[in-house]
Each structure stands twice: as C-alpha cells, then as structure tokens.
Design a protein around this nucleic acid. Structure first.
Lengths: 255, 255
DNA sequence: CGCCGAATTGAGTCTATTCAAATGTGGTGG
DNA sequence: CCACCACATTTGAATAGACTCAATTCGGCG
C-alpha cells in the first residue's frame, strides 16, 4: 500500500494528533491532560488477521483502544463452542471486563490487520489521581458500555431475525459514519458465522435474511460489501415493532 | 413476621455495622475508608411495592444500593411495551447506566417494600480523590456488571426456554445464598410476566417450563415459592449444552 | 360472594432450526 | 494455466420449539 492515509501505525503516533482523538479516551480532555495521557499509553506493532490481543484466562494486563482495523471478542465454552460478545472498531475500547477478578474472561482477536493503543493496568491505578477528568471519562465509557450491552439484550429478546440483522447493519453504519467513513457502504470484516453467533442465529438464517433484505431493495449485497439502499425502511425494520408501529414492507411477523 | 432480623431499615444504619457490608460498596475497604464512605451516603424512608426509585429520562442523580427488598429495572419503548433489564437484590447496585449521558435510560421500581442507600453524583466526582480504593472498587463493580450482562447475552442467544429458566433459578439461588439466605428455597418477588420478559420468553412458556421442571422432580413450585430439589440436574440443565456434555434428563433439544 | 389479576393448560401456527446439498471463491501446486 | 482443495456462502426441505389465541383455574381482596 503506497499511500495509506489511515495507516496510523506508520506515523509517530500521539493522542494529540490522532484522528480518533474525539472518539477515544481523550474525548472531552483538555490539551494538557491529553499530553499526560499520551505518556501513559503504549503503542505496538500491528497485529495480523487471526492474531490474539489477549486470551480468555490471561492475567489482566491492560485496557486497549483500537487504532485501526477491527477485533472480535469471544468467550470460549468448555465444549469448544464460542460466543461472540462484540465487534470493535477504531476508537472503541477492549478489555473493560476482567478488572473485577483480574483476568480476561474473553479473548480478543484481530479480524484484519490492526493496531492498538495500550493503557497498562498499573497506570490505571494512579490515573485517577493524575487525571481526574479521565477518571470520569472512564466511568462514562463503562456506563455507556453497560447501556449498549443492555440494548443488545433487548434486541436479542424481542426481535426477529430480520429485525436483528437490520439493527446490526444500522449499528455498524452508524459507527462507521461516526468515524468519518461512508455510512451507506459498509464492509464486513467478520464472517456470516460470526454475525450469526453474535445475533443468536444460525449462519443459514443470516444468509437467507440478508438475501430477503436484498430482494426487498433495502440492501445491496456482494459478499462482504453491503450497500444500504433504503435507510428509512431499514430503520423501520430494525425497531419497527417498538418505536415505530408503521411499516411499508410486505411480510411481517405473526398473525 | 414479628421478628425480622434482616429488616435493616429499623436500625440506625451505617455501613460499618451493615450486614451487607461485604457485598456492597465497602467491600475490600479499610475501616477508616468505610467511615468516610458512610458520610457520603444518604438513607431514605422505605419505598412501597410499585414505587419508582427513578424514572427513565430523569436527570442522573445518584448511584443506589439496595439495602432490603428488591427492585426491577426496565426500559420503556415508545409503543408502551417494556423490557426488563434486571432484578436487584440487597447489596446490589442500581444506576450504573446513565453516567454517560446524564440521564437514566431505565426506570427502577420496587418489587416489594424496600430500602436503599444513595450515593449522590456530585459526591462521586470527588470520591476518586478522597477514596482511591473505592474508586478502584467501582471500576471492579462496573467491570463485573459488564461481564454479567454479557453472560446474560450468551444465555439468551444459545439457550432453550428450559435452560434459561434453569439458569435464572440458579442465579437467584446463588445470589440468595451469597446473602446468607437459604439457597434451595427461593421466593420470587416478580411475576411470571416479569420473568418471561427478562428471559425473552412468553409468560405461558415460563409457566409450562416451570411445570415441566416440577414434573421432573427438579423443582418444587407453589406460586412464588420455589424449592430446588435436585441441584445437580438443575445445574446440568442450565448450562449442560456448553460446559457439561453429560446429562441425566430425558428430553433434550434438537435431534 | 363475586370480581380481578395472576397463573395454568390446551390447540394450532409460525419462525428459525437442523440436516443436506450445491455453488462460489481464493489459494496452492503440478 | 488449470486442477484441486479448503472454506465461506447460498439454497432447499423437513422438523421442532416457542408463540399466539383462547379458555380455565387459582388466589387475594373488597
């Protein structure tokens, strides 16, 4: 790649000049505080696709922020099956779980070539004194994370396959948009199986449902590339049953 | 009940003498620190069944700890339906969501007569400086909460009605046990509808499934009272499909 | 005693699953 | 260049678990 504007790993990185600054830990911090934070953070060489950032059961080391690329976190059950707990885009935090008992209870895996910033645990300990505003920021981040997980709970409990997929696509689109990327042309870095696992469906159902959304003219799908053709109808599908009783699509759930 | 040993609201309460001390915020704090915390906390007169502790959309006020009784938190959708996000027993924290955007995104309702302790937000702000160990404790609590929500996600995605119910009952039993109550005789303070909503099922399915567990001799059920008759089989049912491939019960999911 | 909500029980339906096979894609090596 | 393999994805048919609709029972309370 001759000119990759977003390949942050090639630059001498700093929070201050990072394009993700407003999405990430430094959000809402003063310039002086960002400078202090900068000294606490560590950077590393990129991870390749499939590489582990940490493994379930590892002693808790650090809080991580995705700088480029994407990750998935998953929990491994004793019988070998896995549960995907989330996908993580640039600017998002990995490693909020595990502070409680001192070890990660999930594994984090790069879905593509990716870079991260690291905030080691031992620095977290005196961070509250050094950077009170970052301490508050961390409270907010964790609180938001709880809220997000709870929203996911609601989606899983009350939504059909179609609604889950619609929510999933919209969520990704919004997160892309928030990062300055196109919001109606998203690239999936995960497999259908990963999506199915995350949404509590089978990969067949994901495939079928995406095909159905394509046939309706709501999405354009070519392998990992998804074009959002009709945002309004997608939005209606994603939460129609709860927040918007109207609907223009033909087939609906139930009698 | 003429002599209710656990009716803490009748005592002049303090964290130091509170029987919940080791379950609650003061956990792992030194005596001196608990004394400081004591000064930050506020107590109130009891709430009656059905009373709101706070409502969705209220400006964020405080972190709450259940002292006695129980609560449910739920999110109200625009169409009037509700999603129950959790049940809260003595020693458990309410109000971790909402720190992020400054307002509660759920409502908290007493399921029975209940008392709470309150830690106002404006005190949280300087708490990090005053009580560094409590600050760390709060990180742990929030981290654990994220972990719990994620475990709930896994249950909802991969478990049948029977497995969900088994997990739910076991979770309650463990939490009761942890509080010094009987672990094989639990009293439900919530309705079947609440349980169904929480587990992503219908109340009919909850009723039927509980009946099935009773017929198997695993549970004894009389209205809101549940006796755990066969803990081993209950445990197997709750997560047999993932963490324990063996099973002694007759009917299983799938082919 | 009768009302009302909570809970149980029954019958039929539907969504998503399971099992199965085919298609497509990318990479490897002859 | 193309055969071949591994893997992801699509598509089809049948099954099953949970849902919806509906009626009944139970229990508390005025």
């Amino acid at each position: 790649m001759p000119e990759n504007v977003f390949d942050l790993s090639a630059l001498k990185v700093s929070c201050q000049r990072c394009s993700l600054r407003h999405l990430c830990l430094p959000n809402e911090l003063t310039n002086g505080d960002v400078e202090k934070l900068d000294d606490l953070m560590e950077r590393h060489s990129p991870l390749q696709r499939g590489e582990f950032l940490f493994r379930q059961g590892d002693r808790y080391r650090s809080l991580y922020v995705v700088r480029s690329g994407s990750f998935k976190t998953h929990h491994l059950h004793k019988d070998g099956t896995e549960s995907i707990l989330g996908f993580h885009l640039p600017g998002e935090i990995i490693g909020l779980t595990g502070l409680g008992n001192g070890e990660y209870h999930t594994s984090a895996i790069a879905l593509e070539r990716a870079t991260i910033c690291e905030l080691p645990l031992h620095r977290l300990h005196y961070l509250a004194q050094l950077l009170p505003s970052l301490n508050e920021q961390l409270y907010k981040i964790m609180s938001n994370r709880i809220t997000e997980d709870q929203e996911m709970l609601m989606i899983l409990r009350e939504h059909t396959a179609q609604e889950r997929l619609a929510s999933f696509v919209m969520s990704l689109a919004q997160r892309f948009k928030h990062r300055g990327f196109s919001s109606d042309n998203i690239v999936l870095s995960m497999t259908r199986q990963d999506i199915a696992n995350f949404l509590g469906l089978t990969l067949e159902t994901v495939s079928r449902t995406l095909a159905k959304l394509e046939k309706k003219g709501i999405l354009g799908i070519e392998r990992r590339n998804i074009h959002i053709l009709d945002n309004d109808r997608l939005h209606k599908l994603s939460r129609a049953s709860h927040d918007d009783p109207s609907g223009t699509d033909g087939d609906r759930k139930g009698a």
